[in-house]
Simulated assay, not measured.
Amino acid sequence: MSKPTVRPSRPFFSSGPCAKRPGWSLSGLDQALLGRSHRAPEGRARLREVITRSKDVLGIPSDWRVGIVPASDTGAVEMILWALAGERGIDVLSFESFSGTWAQDLRDVLKIEDLRVLDAPYGELPDLTKVDWTRDVILTWNGTTSGVCIPDASAIPAEHEGLVICDATSAAFAMDLPWDRLDIVTWSWQKALGGEAAHGMVALSPRAAARLAQPSPRPLPKIFRLANKKGLIEAIFEGDTINTPSMLCVEDALDGLRWAEQIGGLPALKARSQQNLAAVTKWIATADWVSFLSAKEETRSSTSICLKITAPWFESLSAEAKGKAVKHLTGLVAKEGAGYDLASYRDAPAGLRIWGGATVETADIEALLPWLDWAHEQTRAEFSA
């Protein structure tokens, strides 16, 4: 096939850090509180604004606490695991790279004895009917590296004895989260709002806050401490961060939140992401070499859109050769300036991953897809020779 002539206006499809919002420029950060302390009244006000705007956009209940924590979503999840794991039995859903990491840490690092790992291969969800909701449950709402998401809240009982701890980093600001059925939710700025890395956020229900106020089962490093001898450190949930945040990143997070509000909040963000998934779905219906990694339509992610190459020439390759073929294919697209960071995650099956969050324009995805077809033909010829 001939080389396409139309390129995406913004060829940025990385799943983290993700594309900036449409119209973003450095001038939007001109008011960043640089050279000032984050503990000054103005610094705390900026941090508190991130918290309040996040609660408003996401529809977090008023009695929940929300705080900014170190080390992105990974840090947020780890601090919760270290602070809580072991008080009661734990069920953890493991179906992609990061949820697999939470399971491994609980088993091999924290050495939780009463642990059940409910796993599934890439492209599938574990059997949710086997979850014991009397235990603490750790789940990832959207598998960033597998393109599989929990379809709805029906599997989670409204009343449950344990805490439901939800890693929502690639779901927040793009999908509905059932706040009435969750207890702890974590995310980062670098995903669906296109913010900068290294900062995480954690939201606590009243039940979770009460648990965290109790002594931890183990000693905690400073950056993991949400509580002290007096109980929960309430100042953290008013913008008094554990460690020093980047005020430049804070300003960028505020820029993304204000944009989300301007376009219509969470409903508009969800609609934009769904339109991106629809564009890929329409293309796959006519493509004869690629399909979704998730076979079930109801579990397909609209943000981390993960694809597998199904062409016979590709399937005949060894695992090592498949990796090289994907690198070649995505390299061709990148060399043409038509799309960057399109290979699947390093631990996932060799394939493609297109970020479809709300900061990505559907027109850019539509412009990308013919380039993938072209690059596939070039790669097939190279690897079939």
Rank of each mutant, 00 (worst) to 15 (best):
P215L: 12
A311Q: 04
G43H: 05
L248V: 05
Q262F: 00
W187C: 01
W313H: 07
L257S: 13
K327H: 12
G75D: 02
E161S: 07
E261V: 13
G75S: 02
G123Y: 05
S170G: 00
L372E: 15
V148A: 08
L58K: 09
V290C: 06
L220D: 13
R48V: 06
G239D: 10
L220S: 11
K308Y: 09
P70I: 03
A285N: 07
S62Y: 01
V148R: 05
D132H: 02
D364K: 11
A358R: 13
K55N: 06
S94T: 11
A32P: 03
L352D: 15
M79A: 07
R225V: 10
I138R: 11
A271Y: 08
T129W: 03
T101M: 14
L115Q: 03
A235G: 09
T134G: 03
Q262N: 13
A260I: 11
R107T: 05
T362E: 15
S170Y: 04
S205G: 01
A213R: 09
F314C: 07
A235K: 14
R300I: 14
G357T: 06
L332W: 07
W355C: 14
C306V: 13
S27F: 14
N228K: 10
T140W: 10
L372K: 14
W374H: 14
S37P: 06
Y122Q: 03
G357M: 04
L342Q: 14
N276E: 07
K308L: 12
T241Q: 05
L93K: 04
H376P: 08
T379C: 06
A174K: 03
A334Y: 15
G337P: 09
G339A: 12
D341F: 15
E315S: 08
M1C: 03
G200L: 02
Y340E: 13
R181S: 04
A348P: 00
A385M: 11
A155N: 00
T281C: 07
T359I: 12
D56F: 08
I51M: 02
K324Y: 11
D56N: 13
G200D: 01
A76G: 04
K296S: 12
S25D: 13
G16N: 04
G162Y: 02
K308D: 14
G100R: 05
S246P: 03
L29Q: 04
D56L: 07
I233E: 11
P4V: 08
S384A: 13
R21T: 12
V137M: 03
E361S: 12
V164K: 08
V360N: 14
T310G: 00
V333I: 12
L177H: 00
T74F: 09
S94R: 13
C18M: 04
T362H: 15
S273D: 08
E96Q: 09
G75N: 01
P126N: 12
W133L: 02
K335P: 00
S205F: 08
L47V: 03
S99T: 11
S72N: 06
P349A: 02
S9F: 11
D152M: 06
L307S: 08
I90K: 02
L254V: 12
P178G: 02
G239F: 01
G323P: 10
I112V: 06
P121D: 06
V202F: 08
K324C: 03
V66R: 10
A192R: 11
E113W: 07
A285P: 04
L257M: 07
L125K: 10
E159V: 00
G162R: 02
K322Q: 15
P4A: 10
R300W: 13
E78H: 04
R10L: 06
